[in-house]
């Protein structure tokens, strides 16, 4: 394409483009200098922590501590095998894997696989020790540290019925969280509500409940409710087959609707062809279970509400009554 430009403006454009090129070059050099000073480019962009320098990663004591951390968590046969030589999960040793890649993978996991994120289990320092072990030569570094491993009685899970520490008057957010997500409870909250990205969003997401008072929250849990938000209206569907579905709509397309059938929990996401529907009624009476006042104790409800409020001040029984 030929652009007709005046001679003068062409010169001006050339000068302006050279200037901008210089600016870009300077910026680029600055960035390069910055990152080289900080160590490897990858680790600087991926991690908040600085990686230990190369000598530390080769230190035998550092490596041996890494071996000890690796063995019980990573070295079982379903995962990376004794010494990381391969099991149900890939071999890690003697593969020249880069430390930054190893750190990131251990810390964040790999989505879509069985590789979990381990940042909740290990500190950054501990992860670097594991990295050092993985990078070490497999022939000279033993797979399993057997000496000095004893059975520690504190490994046994302890009863967490919340009786020892907390008083009966103040809610425990930790206990409340455990209740919210308790999968052994047939009607736990997470089956119909999401919170911080976990749970099934059939009813409203409960991540931000700062406006309701504890008393209002209690009422919402134990009293029969009316739904105001049409997104969560209760559907009563009668099918041509005679089957009846009670639930909450998830989505709809041309010829079918997808509805969470809450007749039993866990709720079933059912795809119903519109041609199968004989009757469809909407009601504002919630499908939320009505018996929480008898399935949960006052203390449990207090704990739940404390968890839901997520406020800095404590929530006590007095706040509910």
């Amino acid at each position: 394409m030929i652009t007709v430009v005046e001679a003068g403006s062409q010169q001006r454009m050339r000068r302006e483009s050279s200037a901008s090129r210089v600016v870009i070059l300077i910026l680029f050099l600055a960035v390069l200098a910055f990152f080289s000073a900080r160590g490897s480019f990858e680790s600087a962009t991926c991690q908040a922590q600085t990686s230990p320098d190369g000598d530390r990663l080769k230190d035998p004591q550092f490596i041996s501590e890494g071996a000890k951390l690796f063995a019980p968590v990573c070295g079982n046969a379903y995962c990376h095998g004794a010494g990381g030589k391969g099991g149900g999960a890939p071999r890690l040793r003697d593969r020249g894997l880069e430390p930054a890649y190893l750190f990131k993978t251990i810390s964040s996991g790999i989505s879509g696989t069985a590789m979990l994120s381990f940042k909740s289990e290990f500190s950054d320092e501990q992860i670097w020790k594991i990295v050092a072990f993985i990078m070490s030569d497999a022939a000279t570094n033993p797979a399993i540290v057997v000496e000095g491993t004893t059975l520690d009685k504190t490994m046994v899970a302890t009863t967490k019925s919340g009786d020892s520490e907390s008083s009966f008057m103040t809610g425990s957010a930790e206990a409340g969280k455990a209740l919210f997500f308790d999968s052994s409870q047939p009607r736990s909250c997470q089956l119909c509500h999401s919170l911080q990205g976990e749970g099934t969003p059939i009813g409203p997401d409960l991540s931000k409940l700062s406006n309701e008072t504890p008393k209002e929250l209690l009422q919402k849990i134990v009293l029969t409710r009316q739904i105001n938000d049409p997104r969560f209206a209760t559907l009563n569907i009668t099918l041509r087959s005679g089957d009846k579905i009670v639930g909450v709509k998830k989505e709809e397309d041309g010829d079918s609707i997808r509805v969470y059938d809450t007749t039993e929990l866990p709720a079933v996401l059912r795809t119903v062809r519109k041609s199968e529907i004989v009757k469809l009624e909407t009601s504002n009476e919630s499908v939320m279970p009505k018996e929480y006042a008898s399935t949960y104790s006052m203390k449990q409800l207090l704990d739940l509400i404390t968890f839901l409020k997520a406020s800095k001040t404590a929530v006590t029984l007095k706040d509910l009554l």
């Binding site: 079982n76 046969a77 379903y78 995962c79 004794a82 289990e121 797979a143 491993t149 490994m155 899970a157």
Partner: peptide, 17 residues
Amino acid sequence: LPQEAREGRPFVAGNVD
């Protein structure tokens, strides 16, 4: 190799060679 129980996390507590 003893491990602590953490719900949903691997809980094998041993290595095999």
